[in-house]
Design a binder for these strands. Structure first.
Length: 112
DNA sequence: GTTGTGACGCCCA
DNA sequence: CTGGGCGCCACAA
């Protein structure tokens, strides 16, 4: 690992556990990281994350079922393509039924 | 120690 | 429905 921050480490861990074809909201990820209200931190952390190949950041969206990426190395359009590639149906407005794809964590995740 | 910021979340007009 | 605004937390400078 690199510049270790406990929170960042958990973000990586949680996000990387999101199964194929599912998504989780920033609030969810933050919740599983032990910071229920640090949803903004999740996005901020992912933005400056280097090992993107280990973290399916595109499976993380806001709780409204909408992709709201703001300037990062990747665009919202990129994320939409990636999610579509996993079988999700996403509108041209970058919106979709998050409840239909919402990741429901199991006991294997709550081992922090 | 203080300040600014951010890929959010939620309430209100 | 849309838009505007506040709060929240963790982290970099």
């Amino acid at each position: 690992m690199n510049t270790t921050t406990p929170f960042k480490n958990k973000v990586i861990k949680v996000v990387s556990k999101i199964p194929y074809g599912c998504v989780a909201s920033y609030g969810q990820v933050a919740l599983y990281c032990g910071a229920p209200r640090a949803a903004r931190e999740v996005g901020w952390t992912l933005n400056r994350m280097e090992n993107v190949d280990e973290v399916p950041w595109w499976r993380v969206v806001n709780n409204t079922g909408r992709i709201t990426i703001k300037g990062s190395s990747f665009s919202a359009d990129m994320q939409r393509i990636l999610l579509r590639a996993e079988g999700l149906i996403i509108s041209e407005d970058f919106t979709f039924n998050i409840e239909e794809y919402r990741w429901k964590p199991g006991t294997d995740v709550m081992q922090f």
